[in-house]
Amino acid sequence: MRAVVTGAARGLGEAVAVRLAADGASVALIDIGREVERTAGRISPASEAGQVIGIVADVADETACDAAIAQAAGALGGVDALVNNAGVGGPDTHVVDTAFRDFWRVVQVNLGSAFLGSRAAARIMIEQGSGGAIVNIGSIFGQQGVAGGAGYCASKAAIALLTHSLALELAPHDIRVNTIAPGNMATEMHWDELRSRAAASGTTFEQQVDRVLRGVPLRRHGTGADVAGAIAWLISGDASYVTGQTIGVNGGVWLS
């Protein structure tokens, strides 16, 4: 298994890369931050069989993304799986108070990087002729709207239909495309959002955490390992008849 994970310097992307490497995959970690090289270095000794490399690139930039995926494929000897995890939050303001460039930046990074990464990897996978799997990272907030989250919600909802369309286009090549939609995850991006909600509403961070957990039937935040387990399954042969889907990993939060 030769896998590429974007946005992999920390958080969910790092957790996914750690898991895939532990399963014996060769993994290329791509991130806009230089720390991705240190992250790859940390993971490397844990890898059973494969190699682990870090690539610094902005996957929301067309030229840079194409070059990074090509570099990853060159280093790993091909690409069997791509996890489009790169993304940003924000702008956490109501539409009437949001500058277009701030709205557009979120859509460009979250949706644009999924498009660019998928396109570059799919071209390589089709050329290889041995199938493959692409996993996009959506969100519970791509399945329901939230006040102050228009840009983020729209970007993640768009990823679900990008996935859907790509699945149909790539099925003849035995390339499966699915989205994992995490719920409230124990990540810095989520804590930052709760801090900003607390500041905006005159409440405490702890009150915001409590409020979120009251809406999660399993009564806890998701972890990187939760998402990594689902992705490891989805790119494996155990999901060989699953394509075009958006699968929630959210502790049941979508339900009530």
């Binding site: 719920g183 998701g222 387990g229 699953v242 929630g248």
Partner: peptide, 10 residues
């Protein structure tokens, strides 16, 4: 492996 999945239909 699916410890945070509940209520989904795949």
């Amino acid at each position: 492996e699916a410890s945070y999945l509940t209520g989904v239909a795949i």
